[in-house]
């Protein structure tokens, strides 16, 4: 067993058959932005990696030229998680592509329980075109419901091929099941890796404010915030939980009023995770936060206000 110096962020990608999980995974692998992504596929269909991305296949593990890797779980969760945690070089992100019938909450529990993993959210993809049809099969409707209700981020895919009416109906149905998670419409399984995994932020590298980075993603706005003041972690947690679903992801590092050291926070939907950073406090440390939200939602205005109210 390898000991990691910091926990591996794990994102569960869930969604029913044909929703577009595989296309999204390939998109993320293609645009990994230098992150080493380890994909565990909890399905027995074809390993979902586009042929041109594959560098080598070694037993159950496919490696990609950009340092990413993909491994089939084959129903043996013990082996799969051990493989991911002991993998060299250690990945930066773990992405579990859940099977079409998986209940993502059960998989997410692994990240909550294992000290070497941290839950980076449950993302559920919904097929805008055949959601209604799938939902009408009583054998799987409860599974689809569970996938949607557990999600911290909802992606309605194939939006380019859906009519306005279809889109509105699907969104309304999804909102009946999950009213709080951010909901993003996407086409062809394309979504910026920063939204899927969250803005890149490491304790040694303050968040970069790079508005240009997202400029091609017309639907999104960025926001960032810096303060010299220490922060009350419980107030922060409560404030983050009360933010509207137009805030897609938020990350930060901060100093606490009640405890020493440096802390990280990340939020996706209703999931807020606060944890210590394993490095010593530096007197020059400030608290920094960065968020991505939907455009035209006054993101900066209300986040600035919410954060200044923390004092």
């Amino acid at each position: 067993m390898n000991q990691r110096d910091k926990p591996l962020p794990m994102t569960v990608l869930s969604g029913f058959l044909g929703a577009g999980k595989t296309t999204l995974v390939n998109h993320l692998l293609r645009h990994s932005a230098g992150q080493k992504i380890m994909v565990l596929v909890n399905d027995f269909g074809e390993l979902p990696i586009d042929q041109d991305l594959i560098e080598a296949e070694n037993g159950d593990v496919i490696t990609l030229a950009n340092g990413c890797a993909c491994c089939s779980m084959g129903g043996d969760l013990y082996k799969a998680f051990s493989t991911a945690l002991d993998f060299t070089p250690p990945p930066d992100q773990l992405l579990i592509e859940a099977s079409g019938v998986a209940e993502p909450k059960r998989i997410a529990n692994f990240a909550k329980a294992e000290p070497d993993l941290t839950l980076n959210g449950i993302v559920t993809v919904i097929d805008a075109l055949n959601f209604e049809e799938m939902q009408s099969d009583p054998r799987v409707s409860d599974v689809i419901k569970a996938q949607i209700s557990a999600a911290h981020l909802l992606l309605v895919n194939k939006i380019d091929r859906a009519s306005e009416r279809q889109r509105a109906e699907v969104e309304a149905k999804v909102r009946e099941i999950n009213a709080t998670a951010p909901l993003v419409a996407i086409a062809n399984g394309a979504l910026a890796s920063e939204i899927f995994f969250g803005p890149k932020i490491t304790p040694d590298e303050l968040p970069m404010i790079d508005a240009a980075h997202l400029s091609h993603e017309m639907q999104f706005d960025r926001w960032s915030y810096r303060t010299e003041e220490k922060i009350d972690a419980e107030m922060l947690r409560n404030m983050l939980r009360s933010l509207p679903p137009s805030v897609l992801r938020l990350k930060g590092i901060f100093c606490r009023t009640d405890k020493p050291g440096v802390w990280t926070v990340h939020k996706v939907g209703s999931h807020v995770d606060i944890g210590p950073v394993s490095r010593a406090f530096n007197p020059a440390d400030t608290s920094e936060f960065v968020a991505i939200g939907m455009q035209n939602t006054n993101l900066s205005q209300f986040l600035d206000k919410a954060f200044s109210n923390l004092k």
Binding site: M1, D76, L77, Y78, K79, F81, S82, L85, R106, I107, N109, F110, K112, A113, E114, P115
Partner: peptide
């Protein structure tokens, strides 16, 4: 209860049932 909660212990104690 269940694999997710048991896994961290099994991993650290080397209990691999398969």
């Amino acid at each position: 209860q269940e694999m997710a909660a048991m896994f961290p212990i099994m991993r650290r104690l080397g209990i691999n049932l398969r």
